[in-house]
Amino acid sequence: MVPDPAFFVIMVAKIVVVFGLMLLSVAYLTWLERKVIGDIQVRLGPMRVGPHGLLQPIADAIKLMFKEDIVPQAADRWIYLLAPTLALTPAFISFAVIPFGDRIRLFGRTIDLVITDVNIGLLYVFAVASLGIYGIVLGGWASNNKYALLGGLRSAAQMISYELSLGLSVVGVVMLSESLSLVQIVNAQSTAWFIVLQPIGFLIFLICAIAETNRAPFDLPEAETELVAGFHVEYSSMKFAMYFMAEYANMITVAAMATTLFLGGWRGPFLPPVVWFLVKLFLLIFLFIWIRATLPRFRYDQLMRFGWKVLLPVALANIMITAAFVAMR
């Protein structure tokens, strides 16, 4: 069977549009974060480059590209070079299975607004997202810097502790929707969003998601005031930028996941589906930024205790209750 050539065209177009937008939003997320935090902290944030600093991300990108790229002498060269890529790639490709709109009709064809609807989409996202940790651990290790090593170690410990609860927190959703495909999960929320049926699951997911993305109050791997910059202390120029982009891309991905799994994905009245998706995404990201501006940082051991002794049991209990509920239905 000869594949439909239009299929490839549509596929490539979708990939280009989604990743192009993703790159742009990663850049503008830095701007948004600086503006929102600036506002919370009674200052203006970037104002000089363009109106309200709107061109700041572009200026930053240019600056970072032209910065000297330093590889420390004692570094493990190849791993050092590989690590940022390892962090960035998973952050971007996990977005491939997230549906960002209903199917639309264009030029007489039906197009699903998702790059690809894999029937194990959820599993795929988790699998790929956990790969990102290699970038951080290897980066911390290969820099041959003690601060970076501590940052990498913290990161590894943190990811292992929180990945588990993250995975368990969505089991309830999977049970209710009876599918691992993200498209199916969105469809299953046509009557009620899963945040209503799974409020505890949502909370655990949100907390773990913040921990997964290494953001405050779980930003231990890069705790500026303790480890200077943590795992990326030796990185400069574009390699530094790649870690940064990975962090923000991860933020978008987890926010998109939370939207898809708990907030009904693109579903909503009146407005077009894509707009609904973006609105929910934005609100979650705003929440992340808000949390960063407000809360102090956890300590390493407290973080572990919280993950293993609070989140994990609660997530397990949540699964039990959901299972009982589903079985009785």
Binding site: A223, T225, A293, P296, R297
Partner: peptide, 9 residues
Amino acid sequence: IGAMSVFLY
């Protein structure tokens, strides 16, 4: 300790 807004206030 990580509560950065207090600094600016």
